[in-house]
Nucleic acid binder design. Structure first.
Lengths: 341, 341
DNA sequence: AGCTTCTGATAAAACGATTTAGCACTACGT
DNA sequence: ACGTAGTGCTAAATCGTTTTATCAGAAGCT
């Protein structure tokens, strides 16, 4: 790490450091092409790259973005969000400084302060699951919210369009011919807002098909395979005429539980029961037997979107209601026509 | 972000900026306690915190660590590693700058250069799976390797002790009384070195129990549930006297496939077949039915270890052979005594 | 008194860049 | 010959710190 400074380039090219800076930053100062060539050659030969710390001090911007997340480790989705952010950053010569607060408020305050002292140009405030958050006091006004939205609705934010996703999932089942479709709801602490949105989408789709949602077909499950198993058993303990021919699950984990309970009861999938999940969770959705049709959460796209807002490389989204990102349907093999149609 | 500078504190306390700096950095210069108090009070009142960019320029260290990873998004394990790194960083007032190279060499070169230009104090080179890597040309000599080791064996590195993990898993099955234990090997591109190490551990344990490993009980599987299903079927198409009573799987994903095939064949778990996995993969190991006994990968601990080396807050590990991190057994319910003991 | 030592503080240099203002020289028109 | 315009380049200020060297005054000693 014996670093070469602008001074070294200047000496090598036999000009002043001013000239070197002007040339390397493509200023339109009056420097003839010949001199420019000489400077560029010297810089190239020495392998010069400007010290970003010095440059940051002078320019008052560091080409650095702070990424604050509440729980990096507890979700497998974090990666794709960070990757989206990171890809856009790289494409524009920015670096990201990452801090995980573990959801602790005190840590969060310190993290925000650290990033401010490090003079990051802007910050992204990310949640690992879709939620409404209280805007942290110290967070700069121009922070972008990723996968969450501030309670005060002031700020640029992006969240998945869970309602449209719920509609899409249900429509898929309706098109396959199903009429009795259950919704496996999520209970957990804190209550995920996504489950209500997905349920609304489910209702939208049913009503549009002329079906009134039936309360008994909405059953609550712990967010886990076990929750899915239990809910499924409750569902199939109904009189057989009332049993659903398809279920839409809050997420792939509970869908996995549905598979388990269905297998145990000797139901064939998708012959006796069609299933649609949500999340397109890596290593679980695709690896069910049969592979699970599900709705994908657009984590990568949301990450990109947030960073594009931060860098101002996309049309600016107004502060206010969050941008809703589409959740695409991932077709696999867990949906078929209902058994006795 | 109207920032308060050291100048402002100096004015408020009616001293020079030198004095402020001296006091705030607890220098042992001759400043009487009374003046110190005054300065501290002024700093506190104004909410002063030093500009880390300016400080970094002057001190030639930024309290910033570069974290280079090959594939952040494709593995659910990344999170725990990053979290370990990040926690130690925070405890010592450091920040981490994260770049994902996507495994691309050109991107990697640029990333290393960016971090160097940003004057990170040191770098961590992380792999999302256990592998041997070629030391990137531009990587500083003092970089620490996380979950991988440089081919040249020069450098501080930490990897999971997969051999001991394989031994531990097998011993668990031996203690339960099993004698015919299969190993479900992984085939994938590139060939994961972990699978050979785990197999060696498996052999170690068997031999120590006086059992010679049987080649037919080592069967290859694609790293996926489907691979696990196929391998299981091959295993149980053997003459029944030769069928294993337990399997040790390369990882939890293939173990999930074993569950599927076993259920399909009507085998009871763990009555007819005991299973041990590897990875303790979130949302898959614990959610099998019955929950899967497995070996955990110590990602968090490795992350911490790497950062502690970087910051020099733990006894220095010599450059050379990698530090082997223990993989603990996670007891759940997929192991029982063999059926006809 | 005259010298040294101690005390309390600060001026100024340095870190490595960017940028503003301006200098020295040539060319040109009259 | 002289003012003006244009060309090629650079000195110096600046960003916000840390740190070294030094200064003024008080105190102590002979």
């Amino acid at each position: 790490m014996a670093r070469v400074r602008i001074r070294d380039v200047a000496d090598a090219a036999d000009v002043s450091i001013t000239t070197v800076s002007l040339v390397l930053n493509n200023s339109d100062a009056r420097i003839p092409e010949k001199t420019r060539e000489r400077v560029r050659a010297a810089a190239e030969a020495l392998g010069y790259a400007p010290n970003q710390v010095a440059r940051g001090l002078r320019e008052k911007r560091t080409r650095t973005i702070g990424f604050i997340s509440n729980q990096i480790a507890t979700t497998p989705f974090a990666g794709r969000m960070i990757l989206g952010v990171q890809d856009v950053a790289r494409e524009h010569g920015y670096l990201i400084i990452l801090v995980d607060t573990g959801g602790d408020e005190e840590t969060e305050r310190e993290a925000i302060a650290s990033l401010a002292n490090q003079r990051v140009d802007r910050m992204i405030y990310a949640s690992m699951w879709h939620q409404v958050v209280d805007r942290p006091k110290a967070l700069p006004q121009d922070a972008v919210f990723l996968n969450c939205r501030p309670a005060d609705e002031k700020g640029v934010a992006v969240v998945p369009d869970d309602r449209a996703g719920g509609r899409l999932a249900t429509e898929r089942l309706l098109t396959a011919g199903h009429r009795r479709i259950a919704y496996l709801d999520a209970v957990s602490e804190p209550h995920p807002i996504a489950t209500d949105l997905r349920y609304e989408g489910y209702c939208d789709a049913l009503r549009q098909a002329g079906i009134e949602p039936e309360p008994r077909l909405r059953v609550s499950a712990e967010v886990s395979a076990q929750g899915g198993r239990e809910a499924t058993n409750r569902l199939f303990d109904l009189p057989s005429a009332e049993c659903p021919t398809a279920v839409f699950c809050f997420n792939d984990r509970v869908a996995a539980g549905v598979y388990q309970a269905a297998h145990r009861r000797g139901l064939l999938l998708p012959g006796d029961l069609s299933i649609v999940g949500y999340d397109d969770q890596q290593y679980v959705a695709a690896e069910q037997e049969p592979p699970l049709t599900t709705i994908a959460l657009p984590h990568y796209a949301m990450g990109r979107w947030a960073m594009e807002q931060v860098l101002g490389v996309a049309p600016a989204w107004p502060a206010g209601p969050a941008h809703l990102m589409e959740c695409p349907l991932v077709e696999r093999e867990s949906v078929g026509p209902p058994s006795e149609a």
